[in-house]
Design a protein around this nucleic acid. Structure first.
Ligand code: ZN
Ligand code: ZN
Ligand code: ZN
Ligand code: ZN
Lengths: 156, 156
DNA sequence: TTGCTCAGTGTAACATTATACCAATACAAA
DNA sequence: TTTGTATTGGTATAATGTTACACTGAGCAA
């Protein structure tokens, strides 16, 4: 922990706004957005797409040379629980959520196998359809994983 | 490869029927259901639920002491491609599909976090909903992952 | 302030899941 | 048979994820 947080900022400030949202959300819930968690948050926010835990760890190490796997997984756990970040199960990667506030919303992802782009889409209908289907089986959903692989608009 | 295949059979014969279906499907497609692939198929068919690759490997080793991780992963790859088996991404496990014939059908799973039971459900509506949502984003789906976690009927 | 408590962290080791590589072999087509 | 391709054997290693335990440091009550 030698490098100041300011060193992680850049000319682009959209991620700073995201961070502010996150800080506010944490304050409301009494969750502690510690330095490491904030660093990982910013690394994810600055990323365009998804990133693996160990790639993220490599980046974090530039800010905190002592970082270890547990460091990054703890931070990712925390950020996931707050709903700031989603894990993509089918590619073992993580991606910043740009719709948080609603901390436990259903997640639907379109993953381009060509360029790696990941789009998070929003559909309550879809969520409802899944739930009603589960209901019909007497099943109660606590968490859903919806990940569609294929080709994005740009890669047709 | 010392133990004869017949040693894998038991009093229950439902999996034998499944195997016959699989053999037929492979013949149609010119796919080779080799001895190892068949052994893995039967191990999965006899299982009630999902199983991890290394657990399956342990079972396979009783039939073929020389089996290695690559052995099981190759077999699982093959069986997945034929649509006989589905990988459950969110728990790194594999489960026999009981609806094959339609080799690349959409898969929707209900996974009980309490008892581990996995139910494969069928919904073309659901598939259509996902595809139309993807269409709206100019995205073409080649493979979809839908895994709902929660509690099954028996574990409410 | 002092001491208590507990979430969070540092650190190392470990566990699990999956693939790369290359040689050997089996199979099918020519 | 020859030739090309799919499959397998065998070793090692990559990639991903978890646990255990001691320690720190912020928040809080006395
Ligand atoms: Zn989201
Ligand atoms: Zn693309
Ligand atoms: Zn199926
Ligand atoms: Zn259950």
């Amino acid at each position: 922990m030698t490098t100041p947080l300011s060193a992680t900022s850049s000319h682009d400030s959209s991620h700073v706004k995201l961070l502010a949202q996150a800080q506010q959300a944490c304050q409301k819930k009494g969750a502690r957005l510690t330095k490491t968690r904030e660093q990982v948050f910013l690394l994810l926010a600055k990323r365009k797409g998804a990133v693996g835990a160990y790639d993220l760890l490599a980046e974090l190490k530039e800010l905190d040379a002592a970082a270890k796997p547990a460091t990054i997984y703890r931070a990712l756990d925390f950020l996931s629980k707050q709903g700031f970040v989603h894990k993509i199960e089918s590619i073992n990667a993580f991606i910043m959520c740009h719709h948080f506030g609603d901390c436990n919303h259903p997640v639907q992802l379109l993953i381009c196998d060509e360029c790696g782009h990941v789009e998070e889409i929003q559909s309550n209908n879809f969520d409802l359809a899944l739930r009603s289907m589960a209901d019909a089986n007497g099943f109660t959903i606590s968490h859903q994983i919806v990940e569609a692989h294929g080709h994005c608009k740009a890669c047709q």
